[in-house]
């Protein structure tokens, strides 16, 4: 089902907001947001987000569908849940952002994101195969340098602060990469998954 597009002649058209309330995971509680900013202030990468969750929610109310679904805010959530536990109105912010990202994909607002995602998926799969888990540093490293050496260094430097914040909020660690215990089993599972995918084709 597509989100109802807002009436372009009307600022603060509520059709989009009402769609979000009713169809987005956790959207029901979005009505309760009182714009205090605890979420955007809690976010380890809040500074890197174009709007941050708080303002994004106001934009939903304002009917700014396109701006919301093309926002980087919905893609950048690292699921640390700091905003969720601190939200004084118990809005499940993480769920809402993730499901808005799904909506953006469904409605085709993700062209740029798609190309980007392919690079990221590659890095992710490499880490999963090697360690049985994601190592944030290596995944982002491979992902960044997939754009070329210069761009990779630029991206790496530009995101130092995020890295620091992620370490602080225990979303990233220092030291040797950890591997899971039963790496072999995981690799068997991945191989099986590949086999199924090969058999049925993409999009299974």
């Amino acid at each position: 089902m597509n989100a109802i597009s807002p009436n372009p002649s009307r600022a603060y058209d509520l059709n989009f907001a009402r769609y979000v309330y009713e169809n987005i995971d956790g959207g029901e509680r979005l009505r309760m947001c009182m714009q205090c900013g605890a979420c955007s202030g809690s976010c380890p990468i809040g500074q890197q987000m174009d709007h941050g969750p708080r303002k994004l929610f106001m934009m939903i109310r304002a009917g700014m569908k396109e701006a919301v679904l093309t926002s980087n805010t919905i893609w950048n959530c690292v699921s640390c849940y700091n905003c969720v536990v601190r939200c004084p109105r118990k809005v499940p912010i993480t769920y809402i952002l993730h499901d808005l990202a799904n909506l953006a994909v469904r409605e085709g607002f993700d062209a740029a994101k798609k190309a980007d995602n392919a690079r990221f998926a590659k890095a992710f799969m490499w880490s999963a195969r090697k360690y049985g888990r994601t190592d944030e540093r290596l995944v982002t490293g491979i992902y960044y340098f997939s754009f070329g050496l210069l761009e990779g260094m630029k991206r790496g430097m530009g995101n130092q602060k995020i890295a620091l914040n992620m370490i602080k909020t225990k979303r990233m660690h220092l030291g040797m990469p950890h591997a899971i215990k039963a790496k072999d089993e995981l690799q068997n599972i991945l191989a099986k998954a590949q086999e199924i995918q090969d058999r049925h084709g993409k999009g299974a």
Partner: peptide
């Protein structure tokens, strides 16, 4: 400052550092 501070951190000399988002300027402080 119209903002509900998200947290207080301990600064380098042990001083309190108030962190959050200024909702009127969108500045993360």
């Amino acid at each position: 400052i119209k903002s509900k501070p998200s947290r207080i951190e301990k600064g380098a000399s042990g001083e309190p550092v108030v962190c959050g988002e200024n909702t009127l300027s969108r500045e993360v402080y």
